[in-house]
C-alpha cells in the first residue's frame, strides 16, 4: 500500500476543503486526480506532504520517499543558480545537507537532464529559462529524487503539446519502474488515454477506481453539482451540520 487515507478532513482556518476522504492507493498505481476548481485537489496533496495538518482522520504513507511538484512553486527564478546546481538538489537524499556530489552523482544529473531533453543546459542560469524549460528542470529534479510516491499538481498546465508529451513520457517511465504516481490533471481526454486509475474529487470523494468507470458523464455532472453546492455553504462541514450536537466540534 503506497498511501492509505482514512476519514481525512483538511481545511484552512477550520473551514474544511476536503471532507471525510477514504482512499487506498496500491503500490505502482498511476492515478489522476480530477475535479472542478476548488474541489480540494491541491489541498489533498498538501495534506499528504504534511504541509497541512489534518483536521480529522489519518494519512499513512507506505512509501519510503515522497517527491512533490507543487502547483504554485516557490522557486525564486531570479536566484543565481545554474540548471545543474538546481537539478542536483534532487540528490538531497544522497548528499544530505553537508555531503558533496560524487562523479556518479554528476553523471546522474546529466542523465536526468537528458531524460527531459535539456542536455547542454547545465551551465545556463535558471533565470534564463522559459516556462516550459522550467517545468522540464523540475521534472529532472523529480527524477533524481528517486521517490517511491510522486505527487504532481497540474504538471502539464500551460505547456505546449511537445513539452507536455515529453514530460508525460517521464511519468509513464515512472509507472513502468513500479513507482506510485498521483497527478492532479484537468485534461480529461489525456487522463482517459494515459491514466489507468482516477480519483474524482469535489470536496468529497465522488468516485475512485479504473478511469473508464470513474469518468462517466453522470459522475462528472455530480462532481460539478457537489462543488457548486459546497461553495454556497463552504464554511461548515455538511455532515456535522446534519448533527447539530457535534457542531461545536467543527
Amino acid at each position: 500500500m503506497a498511501l492509505r487515507v482514512r476519514d481525512l478532513t483538511l481545511g484552512y482556518d477550520r473551514h474544511p476543503a476536503v471532507h471525510h476522504l477514504d482512499l487506498e492507493l496500491a503500490e505502482g498505481s498511476l492515478t489522476a486526480i480530477v475535479g472542478p476548481n476548488g474541489a480540494g485537489k491541491s489541498t489533498f496533496l498538501k495534506g499528504v506532504m504534511g504541509e497541512l495538518p489534518p483536521l480529522e482522520g489519518k494519512i499513512e504513507r507506505g512509501a519510503a520517499r515522497v517527491a512533490y511538484l507543487p502547483q504554485l512553486s516557490e522557486v525564486d527564478r531570479s536566484f543565481p543558480l545554474s540548471v545543474k546546481a538546481f537539478v542536483a538538489m534532487g540528490l538531497w537524499h544522497r548528499t544530505g545537507a553537508f555531503g558533496g556530489l560524487s562523479r556518479a552523482d554528476l553523471s546522474r544529473v546529466g542523465e536526468a537532464l537528458a531524460a527531459v531533453g535539456l542536455t547542454g543546459f547545465e551551465r545556463r542560469p535558471i533565470s534564463a529559462l522559459s516556462g516550459g524549460q522550467v517545468q522540464r528542470v523540475m521534472f529532472a529534479r523529480l527524477l533524481l529524487q528517486d521517490a517511491d510516491l510522486i505527487l504532481l499538481d497540474e504538471p502539464f498546465t500551460a505547456l505546449d503539446a511537445k513539452t507536455a508529451a515529453d514530460l508525460l513520457a517521464v511519468v509513464q517511465r515512472w509507472h513502468g519502474e513500479g513507482r506510485t504516481v498521483l497527478a492532479v490533471l484537468h485534461d480529461i481526454e489525456a487522463v482517459r488515454r494515459h491514466f489507468p486509475e482516477t480519483l474524482l474529487l469535489a470536496r468529497e470523494k465522488v468516485a475512485h477506481g479504473p478511469t473508464d468507470t470513474v469518468l462517466t458523464a453522470e459522475n462528472l455532472f455530480r462532481a460539478r453539482q457537489m462543488s457548486e453546492a459546497f461553495d454556497d455553504d463552504a464554511n461548515v462541514c455538511a455532515r456535522l451540520a446534519e448533527q447539530p450536537a457535534k457542531r461545536g466540534a467543527a
Binding site: 504541509e51 512533490y68 516557490e74 538546481f86 538538489m89 538531497w92
Partner: peptide, 13 residues
Amino acid sequence: LECADPRFLRSVS
C-alpha cells in the same frame, strides 16, 4: 535551498 526553493527544502528535510 532555503533561498531558492524553500518549499522543496521543507519537502526533503
